[in-house]
Design a protein around this nucleic acid. Structure first.
Length: 771
DNA sequence: CTTTGGATT
DNA sequence: AATAAATCCAAAG
C-alpha cells in the first residue's frame, strides 16, 4: 500500500531512522519515543518477536561473513574490480536514456481514502483499514499516532485507542481503482498497474501528441486531488522515489537532465529505492553505505562481495538509472493460496485444511485456465518458522484432486518427520508453479485434437480437459519476439538518438549538445584510422599496471593485460614504479582525488561547496600504497565525493593527466556537465591527444577505443592474416567479458525454457537482461 | 529441482 | 488473544 518505507513493523521503530517520521510534534498524536515504547511493550516476549530476533541474528551473521570476505580482499583485486566495474559503468552511462517521461502514481492511503469518501464521518477521525491482526493502511490522523500499514491492529489500538478499524472492502477498492485506471489509460494506454493504488505511466508519447492540441484542451493534465502522489522522472526507479516526495501539489519532477538526476540521487538514502529493503540496507550500512553517493563510491567493493546481478543493480541505482519502458505484464509464474489461523495441531484438521486450500487454488487456476507441474506447500508454525516443500510432477495438473494428491504427500512427510510431536501450525499455503508454456500447450492441444479427431473421447489421466484459450496462445508469440538482451534493447533505443541530436527542451542547452557528440565521434574514427595496422608495433599503456608497453603488437599487449588482470601478484613489481610517475592513474586513489561531481554544485544555486578542492590537495600527495590500502579498508574518508565523471569515470586515467580544476560554471547544463579546463587528455589506448576537454566525451572515446577499437582491429587482422592467432581470441574474450557483454550463466529458473515474460520488479528487470 | 529468503504492495 | 496474502526473483545446494 503505502510506499513509505518507514511504515512496517516494530523493527523500523527500533531502527532509529532519523528524519523519517514526519511526526509533527504537538497537536494530537504521539512522538516517536512514545510510539516505540508502546510498540515494544506490545511486542516483547511474543513468539513473533522471538522469531524476529532470530532472523535478526541470521542477518548479523550474514553481515559478519561478508565482513570477513571483505577483509580478505587485496588491493590488487580491488583495482581489478574497479576497472571492470567502471567499464561497465561507462557502458551504462553511455546508454543513459533521458528521453522518456515516466510517471509513478501512488494514491495516498487509498483504502482509507475510499472509506472516508463513503463515510464522511470518518474524515476527521483516525481510521485504519484492516483487522485487529493486520492493517492495510491508515489515514493521516492515525499516522500521527504511529499507526501504519502492516501493523497489527491490536497494537495500533494501543497507540491510538480512538482508532476506528474498518474492515476492508476490496471489491469497492477494485471498482474505484478501475475508474482511476480508465483515466490513466488516456495518458498511457499501456500503463503498468502495480497494485490497486499504484501505477507507472510512460507519458512520453502523450506529451508529444499533446503538443498539437488546442490551447484550452492542453491546460489540464491530471486533475489533482490531495489524494494522489505523482512522481515524474526519466525512469521508473526515479519516478517511484519521486512519488514519495509530494512536493508542490502531490507531484514532484526530476527534469530529464543528467545533472538533475545526479543532484536528486546524491543524498538519497538507498533504502528509498524500490528493491532495497531492510536487510540490504543493513548489509550496506555495514559497509558504510547509506546514500547513493556512497553506493557509487563502493562499487568496486560491492562487485566483489555481491553477486553479479546484485552489484549490477546497485550500480544502476547509484547512477540514477532505471527502466524506461514499461513492459507489458508477463505471464504469471505462480499462483498460491495461504491462510493464517489460530493454532492447528490436529493432523486430521491439517489435512482437511490442506484439501480446502487445494480446492481454492484449483478454482483460481481454472479461472485463468492454468495448469502447472510444481506444487509447493508452505507451513508456518506457531513460532513463525516457515517451511516450504515442493514437488514437481511430470505433466501439468489443475484439479483440486490432482493438486491435493501431491500436496498431501508433501504434508505427510512433514507430519511424519516431526512425529510423534504434531505440527503446530499457524499458517498453511499451497502454490502452483511451472505452468506449461506455449510449446507444452500446443503439444497438448495437438494431442487432444488428434485424440478427438481420432474419434476418441477418453480423457487424459490428469484430466486436462479445460485448456487455455486459443486467444492467449495467439498472443504469446508476439511477446516472444520482444525478448532481447538488455544491451540490444538499449542499443536499439539509442540508435535513433545517435542520429538525431538528443531532444532536450531547452534550446540553449541543445546547441552545446547537438554538435559535440558527432565531433567526438569523428575524432574517434580518425584515431582508429591512424592505428589501423593492428599488429604493427605500437605503444600502449596497460590499463591495469599503467606501464607503457612500448613497441609491441596489439596481441602481445592484450596478453600483457590479461596477465595483469588475472594474476593478482604477477604484476606486483610493476606496482610501485609505475605509480610513481602515473599516480593519477591509481584506481584506489582515483576515488580520492577525483573531483566530486555532486559536490561541485551547490545546493540549487550553483554555489561552490567548499571542500572539494581541499580534497584534491589533501590526497594528491598521499602515497599510492596508502591510497589503495585505504580503498580496501575504510574506504570512505571525509569529503570523498563521486569520483570524477561517476561511472563514466574512465578507469584509465591518462598518464600526466591532472584533473584539477572543474569548471565552476553551473548554469543550466545539459547532460554533459563535466568540463575540464586543463591539459589535454591523452587516450591511453590509442595514445592520442584528444582535443575535447570534456571528460564524458573523453571517456567515451577511451572506452570505444578499448572495446570496439581493439575488437575491430582484431577482426581486421583476422582478415588480413587469414589465420587467426589463438591469443587474440582470448583477448577478445577478456575485453568482452570486462565490458559485461559475455553471455552470463543462464538463468537457473524455469524462465530458460521459452518463457518470454517480463518481470515487473525494476531490479530484476534490469538484472534479468544481463543474464 | 528444491529450499530459503528478500522484496514489494 | 492477536503480526497478512500474493507475487516475483535470486542464491545455493
Amino acid at each position: 500500500m503505502d510506499n513509505t518505507k518507514e511504515k512496517n513493523n516494530f523493527k523500523d521503530a527500533l531502527l532509529l531512522r532519523m528524519g523519517l517520521n514526519d511526526n509533527k510534534a504537538g497537536m494530537e498524536g504521539l512522538d516517536k519515543e512514545k510510539i516505540n515504547k508502546i510498540i515494544m511493550e506490545a511486542t516483547k516476549g511474543s513468539r513473533f518477536y522471538g522469531n524476529e530476533l532470530k532472523k535478526e541474528k541470521q542477518v548479523n551473521q550474514r553481515i559478519e561473513n561478508m565482513m570477513q570476505q571483505k577483509a580478505q580482499i587485496t588491493s590488487q583485486q580491488l583495482r581489478k574490480a574497479q576497472l571492470q566495474v567502471d567499464r561497465f559503468a561507462m557502458e551504462l552511462e553511455r546508454n543513459r536514456n533521458l528521453n522518456n517521461t515516466i510517471v509513478h502514481v501512488d494514491m495516498d492511503a487509498f483504502y482509507a481514502a475510499v472509506e472516508m469518501r463513503d463515510n464522511p464521518e470518518l474524515k476527521e477521525k483516525p481510521i485504519a483499514v484492516g483487522s485487529m491482526s493486520m492493517l492495510a493502511t491508515s489515514n493521516y490522523h492515525a499516522r500521527r499516532f504511529g499507526v501504519r500499514a502492516a501493523m497489527p491492529g491490536f497494537i495500533a489500538k494501543r497507540l491510538c485507542p480512538q482508532l476506528i478499524i474498518v474492515p476492508p472492502n476490496f471489491d469497492k477498492y477494485r471498482a474505484v481503482s478501475k475508474e482511476v485506471k480508465e483515466i490513466l489509460a488516456e495518458y498511457d494506454p499501456n500503463f503498468m498497474a502495480m497494485s490497486l493504488d499504484e501505477a507507472y505511466l510512460n507519458i512520453t508519447q502523450h506529451l508529444q501528441e499533446r503538443q498539437g492540441w488546442p490551447e484550452d484542451k492542453r491546460r489540464y493534465f491530471i486533475k489533482m486531488g490531495n489524494c494522489r502522489k505523482i512522481g515524474i522522472a526519466p525512469n521508473t526507479m526515479l519516478a517511484k522515489v519521486c512519488s514519495d516526495k509530494n512536493k508542490p501539489n502531490g507531484q514532484y519532477q526530476i527534469v530529464p537532465s543528467r545533472s538533475a538526476v545526479m543532484d536528486f540521487i546524491k543524498d538519497l538514502p538507498i533504502r528509498k529505492v524500490s528493491g532495497i529493503g531492510k536487510v540490504t540496507e543493513k548489509m550496506l550500512l555495514a559497509l558504510g553505505i547509506v546514500t547513493c553517493t556512497e553506493l557509487y563510491q563502493q562499487r568496486a567493493l560491492l562487485s566483489l562481495l555481491f553477486s553479479e546481478s546484485s552489484w549490477h543493480y546497485f550500480l544502476h541505482v547509484a547512477l540514477g538509472l532505471g527502466s524506461t519502458d514499461l513492459a507489458r505484464d508477463g505471464e504469471r509464474k505462480s499462483m498460491s493460496v495461504e491462510r493464517t489461523f489460530s493454532e492447528i495441531n490436529k493432523t486430521e484438521e491439517q489435512y482437511s485444511l490442506c484439501q480446502e486450500l487445494c480446492t481454492e487454488l484449483a478454482h483460481d487456476l481454472q479461472k485463468e485456465g492454468l495448469k502447472g507441474r510444481t506444487v509447493t506447500i508452505k507451513l508456518k508454525n506457531v513460532d513463525f518458522e516457515v517451511k516450504t516443500r515442493a514437488s514437481t510432477v511430470p505433466s501439468a495438473i489443475s484439479t483440486a484432486e490432482d493438486i491435493f494428491a501431491v500436496a498431501k504427500e508433501l504434508l505427510r512427510t512433514e507430519v511424519t518427520a516431526g512425529s510423534p510431536q504434531p505440527l503446530r501450525l499457524r499458517l498453511m499455503g499451497v502454490r502452483m508453479s511451472t505452468f506449461s508454456n506455449d510449446d507444452d500447450r500446443k503439444h497438448q492441444q495437438r494431442s487432444i485434437i488428434g485424440f478427438l479427431q481420432a474419434g476418441n473421447q477418453g480423457l487424459s489421466p490428469t484430466g486436462c480437459t479445460a485448456d487455455r484459450t486459443d486467444k492467449t496462445e495467439l498472443v504469446k508469440p508476439l511477446e516472444t519476439s520482444r525478448k532481447k538482451s538488455f544491451f540490444d534493447k538499449k542499443r536499439s533505443e539509442r540508435i535513433p538518438n545517435c542520429q538525431d541530436p538528443p531532444r532536450c527542451k531547452i534550446a540553449g542547452e541543445q546547441a552545446l549538445q547537438a554538435s559535440e557528440p558527432s565531433q567526438a565521434l569523428k575524432k574517434m574514427s580518425e584515431s582508429f584510422k591512424t592505428s589501423e595496422n593492428s599488429n604493427d608495433p605500437q605503444t600502449f599503456i596497460c590499463p591495469v599496471c599503467f606501464r607503457e608497453q612500448e613497441g609491441i603488437s596489439l596481441e602481445a599487449f592484450n596478453e600483457h593485460v590479461d596477465a595483469c588482470l588475472d594474476g593478482p601478484s604477477t604484476s606486483e613489481n610493476s606496482e610501485m614504479p609505475s605509480y610513481s610517475h602515473a599516480s593519477s592513474a591509481d584506481i584506489g586513489q582515483q576515488a580520492h582525488r577525483a573531483v566530486p561531481l555532486w559536490e561541485k554544485r551547490g545546493h540549487g544555486d550553483g554555489e561552490i561547496t567548499s571542500g572539494d578542492g581541499a580534497d584534491l590537495t589533501e590526497t594528491e600527495d598521499r602515497s599510492p600504497k596508502a591510497a589503495s590500502m585505504d580503498a580496501v579498508g575504510n574506504n570512505h574518508s571525509e569529503g570523498e565525493g563521486y569520483p570524477d565523471s561517476q561511472g563514466k569515470s574512465c578507469p584509465l586515467s591518462p598518464a600526466n593527466e591532472t584533473v584539477s580544476t572543474l569548471s565552476r560554471e553551473d548554469s543550466a547544463q545539459p547532460c554533459t556537465d563535466e568540463v575540464v579546463t586543463g591539459r589535454a587528455l591523452v587516450c591511453p589506448v590509442c595514445n592520442l591527444e584528444q582535443e575535447t576537454s570534456d571528460l564524458t566525451l573523453f571517456n567515451i572515446h577511451v572506452d570505444i577505443c578499448l572495446n570496439k577499437g581493439i575488437i575491430q582491429e582484431l577482426r581486421n587482422s583476422e582478415v588480413n592474416s587469414v589465420k587467426q592467432p589463438k591469443g587474440s581470441t582470448r583477448s577478445t574474450d577478456r575485453l568482452q567479458k570486462a565490458s559485461g557483454k559475455t553471455k552470463r550463466a543462464g538463468r537457473k529458473t524455469k524462465g530458460s525454457t521459452s518463457k518470454r515474460t517480463k518481470p515487473r520488479d525494476p531490479r530484476h528487470t534490469l538484472d534479468g537482461f544481463f543474464k
